[in-house]
Structure formats: structure tokens, C-alpha cells
């Protein structure tokens, strides 16, 4: 419990630091809400008046804490370009990106777990070597290029989906999911390869340890040794990788959304960057970073459950 508390405090400090740094970074760049509202051809007096009215002349820390308080309550400010609350812009897009990350993650777990164990059990055989060669190549393919290849093969040649097409989850949930399948495969494939390689290596390493011999000496069969002993231990490093991967997938979907023309959070972020629509950029970045940090926290907790040797003193 002490471990969890310590991790929780660390997480909160990290969240606070990152929100502070991002707010600070966007505060020092020229251009603010007043300038955005009135345009560059406005008079300095009118700008100054609006700044006073909007509270932009108050001390930095005061503005930061107000922004933070609003952010926590779900008020992310107002977009310069669209003059609408950022929260409204994001709320309908967030489920798309989160859904993509979750589907990709599920794909990775479902495929890499059996494949990693299978290759470990057959290590050195021809099938293992074949899978490992394919694996090594998959690890080197950038996910957006994978996306392009999938678009070509399954979209243009086999015509299994319309490239660039998309259906909102509000219109038809299952068609929405079907349009996410290929983007998710593109995100998942390189991660599957990484996790198969790690799990295979980890299983082989664990299988050589003394406690495995003990398990056999009690009359366990190979399956029993594998599922009750080896896998539990072999999963420990894999859990760390998966935790990092979930965060990676969320960020990776920014790029994949461009490949498959999906209107998710990544799209909003990129267009907002090109329009210099800072409130939106700020909100999306802090939001994604927050999700990543909270994910890392959860992984730390799961990690501790998986490995009882981790304690407050350790690591």
C-alpha cells in the first residue's frame, strides 16, 4: 500500500509539472487570446483593454492556477479559430482515438501472448525461426508505412474497405469499428512483433531457472509448469512493455489518423498546430500526456501485483 501511495504522489507531481511546463511554454510565445480575438490590425489600446477584461495581465502563476482549476473541471478554454469551447471540439473525437488505441492493444495481447509462448516452446525449430524472421522485419516497419501498405493491399487491390472513408460511432457503431480495423492492425503489428520477441526470450530465460525443475519434481506436466510457473514470471517484463505500448499507441494514432483520414484527436491537434490555435493544442497535449501518465501509474500498480518482490525500497 505504501508503494501505491508513493507512486500516486509521484504521478500527481508529474501531472502538475507537465501541465505547468506546457502552460508556461505556450505562455511565452507571442500572441494571446486578445490578439487572436481582435486580429493584428487592431489598435494597441483596444488590445490592452481586452487583455485587462480577459484577465491576461494578471501574474503568470495566478493565471496558471485558474487555468488548471478550469482544466480539472473539464473547461479547456475557447478555440481561437472556431470560437467554441475546446471541450466541445474534443469530446466527440476523443472516443475515436481512445477506441483505436484500445482495439490495437487488444489485438496485440490476443496475438502476441499465444505466439510468444508458441515460439518459446518451439525455439530453435524451423517454425520458430520463420516466425522470428518475419517478426524482425515487422519490428522495422514504421506503423504509418504499414498503414499505407494495408491501404494498398486491402483497400485498393482487394477493395475490402474504402480508403479515406469513415463512419462516426454515433451513426453506426459497428461500421465505425470496421473502419478502425485496418488502422488498428497497422498500429498493432510492429508492437505485436516487439512483444512476441520479448515474451519468447523471457519464457526461454524463465524455463531454465531452478524453480522450474522444482515444479517438475512435484509431478507437474509441461502445461502445468508453463501456465502455473513460467508464464507468470515471464510476463513481468512484458507488462512493462505493454504499459509503454499503450501510451505509444495513443500517440501513434496521431500519425495513423492521418494515413487513414480518421477525424480523431490527432487530426484536431495537427490542424490546430497549423492554425496556431493554442488553447486547443495546449488542451490536447496536456490531455494526452495526462492519459499517458495515468496509464504508467496503473502499469506500476499492476507490476507490483505481478511481482511481489517490488517494494518501496526496491527500484
Amino acid at each position: 500500500m505504501k508503494y501505491a501511495a508513493k507512486k500516486l504522489v509521484t504521478m500527481l507531481i508529474t501531472l502538475l509539472s507537465i501541465s505547468f511546463l506546457v502552460y508556461f511554454a505556450f505562455d511565452i510565445i507571442p500572441g494571446d487570446a486578445a490578439l487572436a480575438a481582435l486580429g493584428t490590425d487592431s489598435t494597441p489600446e483596444r488590445l490592452e483593454a481586452l487583455r485587462e477584461q480577459l484577465g491576461l495581465n494578471r501574474p503568470f502563476l495566478e493565471r496558471y492556477f485558474e487555468w488548471l482549476a478550469n482544466f480539472v473541471r473539464g473547461d479547456f478554454g475557447v478555440s481561437y479559430k472556431y470560437k467554441m469551447p475546446v471541450a466541445d471540439m474534443i469530446s466527440s473525437k476523443l472516443p475515436i482515438t481512445v477506441m483505436m488505441a484500445l482495439i490495437s492493444f487488444a489485438m496485440m495481447v490476443v496475438v502476441s501472448l499465444p505466439l510468444g509462448v508458441y515460439t518459446a516452446m518451439n525455439s530453435g525449430r524451423r517454425i520458430d525461426r520463420l516466425i522470428m524472421v518475419v517478426n524482425q522485419i515487422m519490428m522495422s516497419v514504421p506503423h504509418f508505412f504499414m498503414g499505407i501498405v494495408l491501404t494498398y493491399i486491402f483497400g485498393l487491390v482487394l477493395k475490402l474497405f474504402t480508403p479515406g472513408g469513415f463512419v462516426s460511432y454515433e451513426t453506426d457503431f459497428w461500421r465505425f469499428i470496421s473502419y478502425l480495423i485496418f488502422p488498428c492492425i497497422a498500429i498493432a503489428l510492429p508492437k505485436i512483433a516487439m512483444s512476441v520477441k520479448l515474451l519468447r526470450g523471457s519464457c526461454i530465460e524463465e524455463a531454465a531457472k531452478d524453480y522450474v525443475r522444482t515444479a517438475y519434481s512435484k509431478g507437474n506436466d509441461t502445461r502445468g509448469v508453463l501456465y502455473k510457473h513460467v508464464l507468470r514470471n515471464a510476463m513481468i517484463p512484458v507488462i512493462t512493455l505493454w504499459g509503454m505500448t499503450l501510451a505509444d499507441m495513443l500517440v501513434g494514432s496521431i500519425v495513423i489518423e492521418q494515413v487513414f483520414n480518421i477525424p480523431g484527436i490527432g487530426r484536431i491537434l495537427l490542424t490546430s498546430i497549423s492554425y496556431r490555435d493554442y488553447p486547443v493544442v495546449e488542451a490536447v497535449i496536456v490531455l494526452i500526456a495526462a492519459v499517458v501518465i495515468v496509464t504508467n501509474f496503473c502499469v506500476d500498480i499492476i507490476y507490483q501485483i505481478a511481482d511481489p518482490r517490488i517494494s518501496v525500497g526496491g527500484r
Binding site: 531457472k209 531452478d210 524453480y211 522444482t214 510457473h229 507468470r232 514470471n233 505481478a306 511481489p308 518482490r309
Partner: peptide, 8 residues
């Protein structure tokens, strides 16, 4: 030291 399974 090593003959017992560390996570059980």
C-alpha cells in the same frame, strides 16, 4: 534461493 517460484 532460486528453487522456489518467486511470484507464488
Amino acid at each position: 534461493m532460486t528453487s522456489l517460484n518467486p511470484v507464488k
